[in-house]
Write a protein that binds this DNA or RNA. Structure first.
Length: 314
RNA sequence: CGCGGGGUGGAGCAAUUGGAAGCUCGUCAGGCUCAUAACCUGAAGGUUGCCGGUUCGAGUCCGGCCCCCGCAA
């Protein structure tokens, strides 16, 4: 009665999605018929055409790869996908809109992993937004896609605590560690009717937005606790930064401190540590990265820059 | 031909118009101290990324190459 193997098509693009693809490719109950990802794009300093990470992984696994910049407009690809006659589609950070015409192709619909506890933090920057919002818990949601942006019914969720030192980078690692199995088990359970989709409560929904590089510029009039969260949320990208002597300097690690003996933006030293005063409290700098340089401890940074301590940041 | 920053002892940075390669830190040795990430004295450690050129003389100027990093995508 129960099928022993389910055929699927995998949709994904960035590094985050790669462990999920591996999970399904290696899983005895799933048969990955094809992988859909975004086109190669010019990247890097020489603008070399670079394939997305999922494509590289898929080719290593000898899977069929389809690339497209838009599923909505690509009728030919839709026909091909229909031809696979799969049970389910899996979408992990595809970065493309999946139109209804595509969602309807697989017999059982399309299942998706979203790194937040939906309905909170819908949209493209859920992890960063959760840190910025000072959430203590976030998570991974496995849901069915519908036409809306992360609005589909939920099948299963896993909670992940956000520690004092967690960053977007460290939480992504957690998601890559726990997510693949959660997704494959949930997909299997769903296909075998063990899970019932639960609609989201739209009244509790919050929306996140795509981050821009300039969102990382620090405003020292804000309070130090928020700035410290910003540093954690923006690692590794877009990076929280300030400018000093026409040089852009990313803060990779910093801590919040209550004391604030000086006006916002003033850089001072206390007990061997370097602080920047803010609108409320101050920020203890720990690891920074001047553009064009490698990451270094604040001690090293200050050593070669006499005059940094004692100056003011705007 | 996308734009830009940078390679100088182990680390971070200097070096005016080409004219003895220095500073801060670390390391090692010794000293002082009840003690210390403190302080004092001394020492080691460089083919200034690589190759070639100009010059009496190149870290510095010219040409080529390698490597690191940011922007942009």
């Amino acid at each position: 009665m129960a099928k022993s193997r389910f055929s699927v098509v995998f949709f994904g693009t960035p590094e985050l999605a790669v462990p999920f693809l591996h999970e399904f490719a290696a899983h005895p109950r799933f048969d990955v018929k094809a992988v859909v990802t975004q086109p190669d794009r010019p990247a890097g300093r020489k603008h070399l055409l670079t394939p997305p990470p999922v494509k590289i992984a898929a080719e290593e696994l000898r899977l069929i790869v389809h690339q497209t910049a838009s599923l909505k407009k690509n009728q030919a690809l839709q026909k091909i996908l229909e031809g696979y006659q799969v049970d389910l589609c899996i979408a992990v950070a595809i970065g493309l809109l999946l139109p209804l015409s595509v969602l309807k192709i697989p017999r059982a619909g399309t299942i998706n992993m979203h790194p937040s506890l939906l309905p909170k933090f819908r949209g493209p920057s859920p992890v960063q937004s959760a840190i910025l919002a000072d959430e203590k818990i976030t998570g991974i949601s496995v849901m069915l896609l519908d036409e809306g942006m992360d609005t589909g019914p939920i099948l299963k969720q896993m909670r992940l605590p956000i520690g004092e030192k967690d960053t977007t980078e460290s939480l992504y690692a957690q998601i890559q560690h726990h997510g693949p199995r959660l997704l494959s088990e949930t997909a299997l359970g769903y296909l075998e009717n063990a899970f019932k989709p639960t609609p989201q409560d739209d009244s509790l929904a919050t929306q996140t937005f795509l981050l821009k590089k300039t969102d990382g510029k620090i405003d020292w009039r804000q309070d130090a606790a928020s700035i410290a969260r910003m540093v954690r949320a923006f690692v590794p990208w877009p990076g929280a930064y300030f400018e000093w002597q026409d040089q852009k300097i990313d803060i990779l690690q910093a801590e919040f401190s209550e004391k604030r003996p000086k006006p916002p933006g003033y850089i001072f030293e206390n007990a061997g540590h370097v602080f920047v005063a803010t609108g409320k409290g101050s920020l203890k700098l720990k690891v920074v990265k001047p553009s064009g340089k490698k990451a270094m401890s604040i001690d090293e940074f200050v050593r070669g820059r006499p005059g940094f301590v004692g100056s003011s940041l705007s």
